[in-house]
Design a protein around this nucleic acid. Structure first.
Length: 106
DNA sequence: ATTGTGACCCTTC
DNA sequence: TGAAGGGCCACAA
């Protein structure tokens, strides 16, 4: 089990540290927040974010690098635009893995 | 108590 | 690369 209240808090805090130009996955985010195995709940949390939130929700993708929304939907376009605006190359409905959290030099 | 439902993930072909 | 199958966990009905 887990206290969802602090899970969301931990997730918010963790997400806040994700630098511009970097992306991560739901699973990684959950892990870094201290809740391994809670990827789905992370999704549920982001789903509940107000549309005008300051948090970089768009930097969270699936583990395989694809966007979580079906191509064509407004949500999909919104996220894609935000990513491109940060200089993250989006190829169709996915992003190259090198953008994943090791923004550090390679 | 059971069942279905996700902005999910991983291992194996 | 990509599909399939199974695992995962909180929540609502």
């Amino acid at each position: 089990m887990a206290n969802m209240a602090q899970l969301s808090t931990a997730v918010y805090q963790q997400l806040r540290t994700l630098p511009t130009g970097c992306v991560t996955s739901y699973g990684q985010l959950a892990l870094q927040a201290g809740y391994p195995g809670y990827a789905r709940q992370v999704g549920a949390i982001l789903r509940g974010l107000p549309h005008d939130s300051d948090l970089p929700w768009h930097r969270v993708l699936r583990a395989d690098g694809r966007l979580p929304f079906t191509a064509g939907t407004t949500e999909f376009d919104e996220q894609k635009i935000r990513l491109l605006k940060e200089g993250i190359q989006v190829d169709g409905d996915r992003v190259s893995r090198r953008y994943f959290r090791s923004c550090a030099v390679s």
